[in-house]
């Protein structure tokens, strides 16, 4: 026991995180300042293998109800003669991975999806009571004790990222594992992505590698025409992705 704790103290960021996890701290880490972060995520399409690890991890970390998804993976199949009408599948959100294919004549790729934590989010705009909102550190979250369950936000999200929790009867969605990122950990999906296709990023942290990445890569957000200020950035996003 002692030995383990001593080692942990050597890893400052992890140590803070770990201590508060062990202590069951009821609030975010004392060193965490809302105004110092602006969370986003980077998804590298070229690295995603469609294993479904992120979906499984998310489901377990967040007790996501069956049949609903805080994150999911889609497999696109694009034929060069019909670039704008891809065939897309996402069996059970890709939680068990995807069927193998041997078809090498067409283009295939995987697109992990999650809440885009939009800076101008249409979902928080329509909430009649202020039960869903953008936190000062850029996470779109739901106040489960305040939500009416009217589902207007679900209608307003262009990306299909929200659902009504069948037991709690309130809106539910990805909150970027807020209980983890405020403790210095990464999200469950990023932690468990074997290829590093998903990276949590803090746009307010000048040392975050995302700045370099955004400068040097061809990066896009989903449905840019929606002008939602989406903060999930996709590297090498194909034009056929909806």
């Amino acid at each position: 026991m002692m030995n383990r704790r001593q080692i942990l103290i050597l890893l400052p960021a992890a140590a803070i995180a770990w201590k508060s996890v062990l202590a069951g701290t009821p609030e975010m880490s004392p060193n965490y300042k809302l105004s110092e972060h602006w969370w986003s995520m980077l998804i590298d399409i070229t690295k995603c293998i469609g294993c479904g690890n992120c979906v499984r991890a998310c489901s377990q970390e967040n007790n996501v109800p069956d049949g609903h998804f805080r994150t999911w993976v889609e497999r696109y199949h694009v034929n060069d003669e019909n670039m704008t009408e891809p065939v897309v599948i996402s069996p059970e959100g890709g939680i068990h991975g995807f069927p193998a294919t041997t078809d090498t004549s067409d283009k295939y790729f995987f697109v992990p999806k999650l809440c885009n934590h939009c800076a101008d989010s249409p979902c928080t705009q329509v909430c009649p009571v202020g039960a869903t909102f953008i936190s000062p550190d850029g996470v779109v979250m739901v106040d489960r004790t305040y939500c009416l369950g009217c589902a207007y936000c679900v209608q307003a999200c262009p990306y299909g990222c929200r659902y009504i929790h069948p037991e709690l009867e309130v809106a539910d969605k990805c909150d970027l594992c807020y209980h983890r990122i405020t403790q210095g950990l990464t999200t469950a999906c990023c932690e468990n992505c074997p290829t590093g296709a998903r990276q949590l990023a803090d746009l307010k942290d000048p040392k975050d590698p995302i700045h370099e990445f955004l400068r040097t890569h061809s990066v896009q957000v989903l449905k840019p025409q929606m002008a939602t200020g989406a903060k999930v950035f996709y590297n090498e996003l194909d034009g056929s992705v909806h």
Partner: peptide, 14 residues
């Protein structure tokens, strides 16, 4: 609500 969300239990240790 922000603090309450931050206080949810974890399952993955990291």
């Amino acid at each position: 609500a922000i603090k309450e969300d931050a206080a949810r239990p974890s399952y993955y240790a990291g």
